[in-house]
């Protein structure tokens, strides 16, 4: 029990002292998660809208595939991205292996099904009268889409939050594609895994606290947006 309490005390000391190694992992995590979330929202929201709004042959099959991808193991994504971006892979020339953009690609693949599936559900669950209302007030195709997404904004924010939580806390992709390189591609989660293996609980706990604080800040932001 003592080593946990000591770890907590040491963790606060590291954070308050602005420990460079700790903050390097925090910066890498924020950078890579922001990149992957931007990409997954840019791709996932329009696709989720189309999947939730349109009725077309094969829609249910696509939905089933997207739902299945929700449980993609991160190590499998890591493995696939590694295979693609390693020097022997089709994207090897882009030198993405052991880089933050490489991790972001993997995390985008992780977040994309979550954004698509949850935003499609959000659009599906809107009342049938919304489309007629927007059209009857003069909305065209673009306004119709933005109007529907705006009406589903709370559920879409929840979808983004869920995806962000998954991206922030994954280890497999960051470890396999990033390689956990100190000062370079070491993220909070890979650092926690490494420091714990080395028996350095303080840094692990400090990084865990930072993860919690980031999650709290994101939730507070979303809560503020919901009230708007």
């Amino acid at each position: 029990m003592d080593f946990i309490l000591q770890g907590l005390t040491e963790a606060f000391r590291l954070l308050l002292a602005g420990d460079e190694e700790t903050f390097s992992a925090v910066a890498a995590t924020l950078k890579v998660s922001c990149l992957s979330m931007a990409a997954s929202l840019a791709l996932g929201l329009p696709l989720g809208f189309l999947l939730g709004y349109l009725r077309f042959p094969g829609r249910r099959k696509i939905r089933m595939v997207v739902d299945t991808l929700l449980s993609l193991p991160t190590v499998f994504i890591g493995l696939m991205v590694y295979a693609f971006v390693s020097s022997r892979g089709p994207l090897g020339e882009m030198n993405l292996l052991f880089t933050l953009p490489g991790i972001a690609i993997g995390q985008t693949i992780l977040a994309l099904p979550i954004v698509i599936a949850l935003s499609a559900t959000a659009v599906e669950s809107l009342e049938a009268g919304l489309r007629t209302t927007l059209l009857s007030l003069g909305a065209g195709k673009y306004r119709l889409m933005t109007g529907i997404m705006w009406e589903a904004r709370h559920a879409i924010l929840a979808a983004a939050l869920t995806a962000y939580g998954r991206v922030m806390t994954e280890v497999g992709i960051s470890m396999m594609v990033g390689g956990n390189i100190k000062w370079h591609t070491r993220t909070i989660t890979t650092a926690i895994a490494l420091e714990t293996a080395k028996g350095k609980f303080a840094m692990g706990i400090a990084l865990g606290l930072v993860l919690l604080m980031i999650a709290f800040a994101v939730n507070a932001g979303v809560s503020f947006l919901r009230r708007k």
């Binding site: 009342e127 049938a128 009268g129 919304l130 007629t132 209302t133 927007l134 059209l135 009857s136 007030l137 003069g138 909305a139 065209g140 306004r143 109007g147 705006w150 009406e151 904004r153």
Partner: peptide, 30 residues
């Protein structure tokens, strides 16, 4: 054409915003 005719559906749906912004929505589109 749709700006010439407007329908009040049986199940009147108000957008999730204030009454003012609901009523001004069509004006903003135009």
């Amino acid at each position: 054409l749709r700006k010439k005719a407007t329908l009040l559906p049986q199940e009147s749906y108000l957008l999730k915003r204030t009454v003012y912004r609901n009523i001004a929505y069509g004006l903003r589109i135009r």
